[in-house]
């Protein structure tokens, strides 16, 4: 039953609401996301360089950097600081690996009240789970294409 005395159908009403609703500022959000996301990457690069200056190979040094960033993301989440950053930075703090860490630690904190197994264990990957599933799937597809290309070219 979608008839109302307002005399609008669903399409008209949706358009009407959109014309009146306040929009997010796309340009501003993009710029902030670019700067904060970039800064997080710079921090990662600094950690990599420091690790390399201690004589680690590049591959090992970037692992050190990844692990450190995950730790920083988790720590800031538990201190309730990552949500403050996220509110300001938007995609800038969601896309880097610190955001991935945040998306696993935050449900873990939230569901602690339902116990370790059915609470934390069952819900920890509620947000990051889809990323893992499709990330793994995508890497399998990529691997196959890469393998084929090696055979034919």
């Amino acid at each position: 039953m979608n008839y109302t005395k307002m005399g609008m159908n669903e399409k008209e009403y949706t358009e009407y609401v959109e014309s009146k609703a306040e929009k997010s500022s796309l340009l501003k959000n993009c710029i902030i996301a670019f700067i904060i996301g970039g800064l997080i990457c710079v921090i990662g690069q600094v950690i990599t360089d420091i690790a390399m200056s201690y004589g680690l190979e590049k591959k090992l040094a970037s692992s050190v950097s990844t692990i450190s960033l995950i730790f920083i993301g988790a720590l800031l989440t538990t201190l309730k600081l990552y949500q403050v950053l996220g509110k300001f930075a938007g995609a800038g703090s969601i896309v880097p690996i610190t955001g991935f860490s945040n998306s696993i630690v935050s449900p873990a904190i939230e569901y602690k009240s339902e116990g370790f197994v059915l609470g934390i264990g069952a819900n920890m990957f509620k947000v990051a789970g889809p990323v893992l599933v499709y990330g793994v799937c995508a890497s399998v597809v990529y691997g196959l294409i890469y393998y084929m290309s090696k055979i034919f070219f």
Binding site: S24, T77, Y82, Q83, N102, S106, V127
Partner: peptide
């Protein structure tokens, strides 16, 4: 929030409406 949306500590932006 935790029933209808995302965990509180999740760092996301609020949309204007």
């Amino acid at each position: 929030e935790r029933q209808f949306r995302l965990p509180l500590e999740q760092g996301t932006q609020m949309t204007p409406n």
